[in-house]
Design a binder for these strands. Structure first.
Length: 467
RNA sequence: GUCCCCAUCGUCUAGCCCGGUCCAGGACAUCGGCCUUUCACGCCGACGACACCGGUUCAAAUCCGGUUGGGGACGCCA
């Protein structure tokens, strides 16, 4: 069987957004799952709006998501001779003709048509003028006036279009640069693309493209149109829906595997399964299980998935990922081992690396700040003797780990005839500054004997001074 | 306006092709409980949907038609 070749063709007019990332993911997964090739192609024929920054931003995002491509990136502006060649071919076979209608005129005619309730399509004014090439002239595709074009979509099934609904689209602009509908077809033909997987906003372009394939005598690829991703108000995802750029999610402390897992489930499913590793996705992905209806992107499940992957990842790896976030807080430098130990205790209670970096504060800074409310409630005068006693007990310890610490506290509580919680909360405040934290003994083990005793003394003297 | 697509819990979805096993399953979120040194994690439970109308049929979430709603396209943008 023929090898599968898919492509992702972003236009470099902005960053890689959530929708594009999912399209890219589907193409990547499909190619990987079928042991095929995945091509990256930059569609920069809109010279006005395309920028190098955008290209870089897109590449960076693809790299972060680890969606590696086998060929490319190709740039359409570097393939102009190829399009010219194919345009010649269409011209020679009578499938294309030159048109001298100005953009201004056309806009006017469109306006009138729309106002009169007609479909605003090109009226074919230059269709039989047999014009030659010339300045300010565009090349148009001669579209059949009757008949039906059928798109057999892998995802949506057969869709019929009346050719009479289609018009003679421009395929080469007056500056000699091909338009999208022409360039994609030429590229997909010459690059041997077997499966075109893209957003369903392209469904209406497809019959035009099919017609061009036919005029060129080329074999059609398979088409699969995936439903769009919308914002919470059901309109297409845009800036006003908050974070839409893939890289913003990196900045917010999400792991790429979480974003990917979240994205793949928007439209695709595999029974009741929710968590998929990259390998599982490659093994299980198929276009047959892609749904037809649009979905809404929310952060709820992404947060849950991210929390899951944070819990699952090796602490040593998290240290690396966390460093930039910790740096943003200007924390003092700590060793990898110390940070890994701290992360292990914080891990079950955060959803993002940003939260992790914040939660880490009491481990990182020398002088913790006390939450006034917590201090007032728990660092009371009656705790002074308790702290004193704990300090002397702890000072005597040779090993300082959870196993040895717990009995010390349990015994102390028992002898003082109070519940463990009664002394645990004040100690927690003394050690962390607040009332919420990982387990007391975990914290103490990570912090170490010296720091613990120092913090207990500080909390105790704070009380003593007040008296 | 014309053409095209879509329609199951708040959200992501399973089921629909091959009607009965579905008074519709899972996950997130929410709420309650358990666990517990706090907060989480974890575990258990609750809430919660087949858009509407009609048809076919012994039987429809599943098939057909229409309505409504949402989305897309109609560029010398991609």
């Amino acid at each position: 069987m023929q090898q599968v070749i898919t492509r992702f063709p972003p236009s470099p007019t902005g960053y890689l957004h959530i929708g594009g990332a999912r399209t890219s993911l589907f193409n990547w997964l499909f190619a990987r799952s079928r042991r095929g090739q995945f091509i990256l192609r930059i569609e920069d024929t809109d010279v006005e709006r395309s920028t190098e920054e955008s290209v870089k931003a897109i590449l960076d995002a693809m790299e972060w998501l680890e969606l590696g491509w086998d060929e490319g990136p190709y740039f359409q502006t570097k393939r102009l001779e190829v399009y010219r060649e194919y345009a010649e071919k269409l011209l020679k076979t009578g499938h294309a003709y030159w048109c001298e209608c100005s953009a201004r005129e056309l806009e006017q005619r469109r306006g009138t048509a729309l106002a009169e309730g007609r479909k605003p399509k090109y009226d074919g004014a230059c269709r039989s003028k047999a014009l030659g090439e010339g300045t300010n002239r565009v090349l148009r595709f001669r579209s059949p006036e009757s008949g039906t074009t059928v798109l057999n979509d892998i995802i949506k099934g057969p869709i019929e279009f009346e050719n009479s609904e289609l018009d003679d689209l421009v395929i080469v602009k007056s500056d000699g640069i091909p338009t999208y509908n022409f360039a994609v077809v030429v590229d997909d033909i010459t690059m041997g693309i077997t499966h075109v997987i893209r957003g369903d906003d392209h469904v209406n372009n497809t019959p035009r493209q099919i017609l061009i394939y036919r005029a060129l005598g080329a074999k059609l690829p398979e088409f699969g149109h995936v439903p769009m991703i919308h914002g919470e108000d059901r309109s297409p995802l845009s800036k006003r829906h908050g974070a839409t750029s893939v890289m913003e999610y990196k900045k917010m402390g999400f792991l790429p595997e979480a974003l990917l897992n979240c994205l793949v489930r928007l439209g695709w499913s595999h029974g009741d399964e929710e968590i998929f590793s990259r390998e599982e996705l490659i093994e299980k992905f198929s276009l047959e299980n892609v749904g037809k209806s649009p979905s809404i992107f929310t952060m709820e499940k992404l947060l849950w998935l991210n929390a899951h992957y944070i819990k699952e990842k090796r602490a040593e790896e998290l240290v690396e990922l966390l460093r930039p976030f910790a740096a943003a807080h200007n924390y003092p430098e700590k060793s990898d081992a110390f940070m890994a130990a701290a992360i292990r205790t914080l891990r079950p209670r955060v959803h993002t690396l940003v939260e992790m970096a914040e939660a880490m504060r009491f481990y990182m800074v020398e002088e913790i700040e006390f939450d006034p409310e917590a201090a007032a409630k728990f660092l009371t005068a009656e705790m002074v003797p308790v702290f004193s006693r704990l300090i002397s007990e702890l000072s005597a310890l040779a090993t300082f780990d959870e196993e040895t610490l717990e009995p010390v506290f349990r015994n102390t509580a028992q002898e003082l005839k109070v519940k463990l919680g009664k002394i645990a909360q004040p100690v927690r405040v003394a050690l962390t500054g607040g009332t919420k934290s990982p387990g007391l003994f975990e914290i103490m083990e990570v912090l170490g004997k010296d720091a613990v005793i120092e913090r207990l003394k500080r909390a105790r003297s704070g009380r003593a001074e007040e008296r």
